[in-house]
Design a protein around this nucleic acid. Structure first.
Lengths: 165, 165
DNA sequence: GATGAAAGGACTAAACC
DNA sequence: GGTTTAGTCCTTTCATC
């Protein structure tokens, strides 16, 4: 893995990433118009972004509520054998995301279920392994925020008292 | 909002949803081949899925690591004034997802940052509001699992002792 | 929902800057 | 690395069954 983004992404690439994260079905011709590049030029840039792995895929986003999932929840799973959790996640189609994390909890899962009975069924599967803590999502205030290359300049060091001040 | 999925999604729709969640850039002709429907037929079905809101969009997925974000983390934010948190999230481009949830923590945020210094900067913004708990994502074992309409038959009631047994 | 025809537009490749 | 052009292919739309 190369830490240095081989040829750093320029302003054109950034605009392309923004557009495709907003609408993955744009044609290369339309994308070219929006970023002010010719169609062959954007096609080549997109090809490179895909080849370098910066763009890892294109997916349709579905509305889980309209699909019939009435409840979304976060399950935090405590210390447990890694392989056992992975196995259980693989057997759980209701699990949208599963992150192995640092801290008291070893896993943070995001699930979608039909109703409370269904939630009970899924949570119980993980309760058997170890302690869990379940939180129902009331409102996904932000989802799938389009991400652009970070700019160091944006990072403001926190202003506060430090011990060795 | 209608709870009953007006005309329930049939097997064709389900296959279409599966394909488009795996590759949003499929052409209607190719999608038709894969689901064994004519191109006009799939086009009309996709149009209806979009119109009914089941498909809410199409997005390119980017590899945050290759974009330059070396660390991803979950921040749990304790009880705090709703509007203040929303405002802070809006001022935080590093925040990919933000969920208002039930439980001791009021919010679960997912962020992407360059490095530890950057993590410090972002966490500190939220620490000022209330208590927070930050977990670094070691391994996103599952991400963006394609979701299909739930089948009641799949929901197995948990087998266990109950108080009124 | 399928088929077939017609029109428009998008992708590819090459030459040039 | 980008643009333009030209050619081919594909997609989309419409009408018909």
């Amino acid at each position: 893995m190369d830490i240095t983004l081989s040829p750093a992404l320029d302003a054109h690439d950034t605009r392309i990433l923004a557009e495709l994260q907003a609408d993955a079905r744009l044609t290369m011709a339309e994308l070219g118009r929006r970023v002010h590049l010719s169609q062959p030029a954007v096609t080549e840039r997109v090809r490179k972004l895909e080849a370098s792995g910066v763009i890892s895929g294109y997916r349709a986003t579905v509305d889980l509520t309209r699909l019939g999932y009435g409840i979304r929840a976060i399950i935090r799973v405590g210390r447990a054998e890694y392989a056992r959790v992975v196995e259980l996640v693989q057997q759980t189609p209701e699990c949208v995301n599963a992150y192995n994390v640092t801290g008291d909890d070893s896993w943070v899962l995001e699930i979608a279920v039909i109703d409370v009975a269904h939630l009970d069924a899924v949570v119980t599967k993980f309760c058997i392994l170890t302690e869990t803590a379940t939180s129902i999502i009331l409102n996904p205030a932000r989802e799938h925020q389009p991400m652009l290359p970070p700019k160091r300049a944006d990072v403001k060091p926190p202003i506060r008292k430090v011990l060795n001040a």
